[in-house]
């Protein structure tokens, strides 16, 4: 036990540094992805083919190809087309685009699950489509968005481990790298798992709390 604590003291600081990178990558990509996703969802449900076609293509491509491929493409293939992005921006672009595609579907499903009568009532009062979306439809989606969005965030957190293929040192890479140096395999992996769990459990807890708050309103 004393040995385990000793090892923990050497392991944790290293892993925490990795966790910091993982979190930064996750949060920035999640934010951008959410904005992208909302825009893409609204474009998908519009009646204007100039909006629906590109949005559908975007969602289809980024949900239909492996995230690793998207990462490597942006980091290693774009330079051949003239765009050389450093590692962190490449990762943010890839993760944001990928998350955005999944989030677009989450938003779309949530919006379309709101009763048609809501939009009809809002429009019949003279509200424009945009106003109705903003004031009536979208606020009603928040509760329905929580579970799938939390899933997506947790998935994104874990997906960031792919970033080591484009030279980003995140939690998983710190972990395997450390192990190769110290051979403290199970100790390091246990703590790595704990750190990922801390993040995902924090997410689900936050979501439950938010859901309860929304319950009160109805």
């Amino acid at each position: 036990m004393a040995r385990f604590i000793e090892h923990t003291i050497t392991i944790l600081p290293v892993l925490l540094e990795g966790l910091g990178v993982t979190l930064r990558l996750t949060l920035i990509s999640a934010l951008i992805g959410t904005v992208l996703g909302l825009l893409a969802a609204l474009a998908r449900i519009s009646r204007n083919p100039l909006l629906t076609v590109p949005a559908s293509a975007y969602v289809t491509v980024f949900r239909g190809t492996p995230l690793l491929l998207q990462l490597l493409f942006i980091y290693n293939a774009l330079p051949q087309l003239g765009l050389l992005l450093p590692a962190f921006p490449s990762a943010v672009v890839a993760f944001s685009l990928n998350a955005g595609a999944y989030i677009a579907e989450i938003f779309r499903a949530a919006i379309q699950s709101i009763d048609r009568g809501q939009m009809e009532a809002a429009r019949s009062l003279g509200m424009s489509y945009g106003l109705a979306m903003r004031r009536v439809i979208l606020p009603q989606t928040y509760r329905r968005l929580l579970p799938p969005m939390v899933n997506e965030l947790a998935a994104l957190t874990k997906d960031t481990s792919l970033a080591s293929s484009i030279s980003i040192l995140e939690l998983m890479k710190y972990s395997t790298q450390f192990i190769s140096r110290t051979a403290l395999v199970w100790q390091t992996f246990v703590w790595t798992a704990v750190l990922y769990l801390v993040v995902t459990v924090a997410l689900t807890t936050l979501a439950s709390w938010l859901e309860k708050k929304m319950e009160a309103r109805g």
Partner: peptide, 12 residues
């Protein structure tokens, strides 16, 4: 003004 069979009040 329109009044609907299912009221369509904004629940939030």
């Amino acid at each position: 003004g329109m009044v609907f069979q299912r009221f369509n009040l904004f629940p939030h």
